[in-house]
């Protein structure tokens, strides 16, 4: 099966190669192979494969990667509207023992 791909030219991922120290964390954590090593620095190989999970930015200790992280989940986005402005988009039940989550399927 070929790779399932989502929309092009839409993600917020930015990468400043000048800040890269070659620690390789981004190449370890990205589940879609967005970053690969080129010599002693990482390069963005496939930006449109990014799912904005935020793993690379969180694990880059050198502030080279930025992304508006969140989950690509329509049910989660709708739920965040009901939670009010600036509501974080995540999935599943809110807080401890808050009962059932959204009907949709994230988690």
């Amino acid at each position: 099966m070929s790779d399932l791909r989502y929309l092009d030219d839409v993600v917020t991922l930015t990468y400043d190669r000048a800040k890269c120290t070659g620690c390789q964390q981004c190449t370890y954590v990205c589940p879609h192979g967005v970053f690969v090593m080129d010599g002693n620095r990482a390069v963005m190989r496939d930006r449109d494969a990014c799912i904005e999970c935020g793993a690379c930015a969180l694990n880059c200790d050198f502030d080279a990667i930025h992304v508006r992280a969140g989950v690509g989940c329509a049910a989660g986005i709708i739920a965040s509207w009901f939670r009010g402005k600036g509501g974080e988009v995540s999935c599943g039940p809110e807080g401890a023992g808050a009962g059932k989550g959204t009907s949709g399927g994230c988690c």
């Binding site: 790779d3 399932l4 791909r5 989502y6 929309l7 839409v10 993600v11 917020t12 589940p31 879609h32 494969a49 990014c50 799912i51 904005e52 508006r68 992280a69 969140g70 989950v71 690509g72 989940c73 329509a74 049910a75 989660g76 986005i77 988009v89 999935c91 949709g104 399927g105 994230c106």
Partner: peptide
């Protein structure tokens, strides 16, 4: 089908917002 974006493994927040 759009609701299934959250269960999939290859969608982004910005992408789903655009789709919605």
């Amino acid at each position: 089908a759009m609701n299934f974006t959250g269960s999939s493994t290859f969608t982004s927040l910005s992408g789903v917002e655009k789709e919605m």
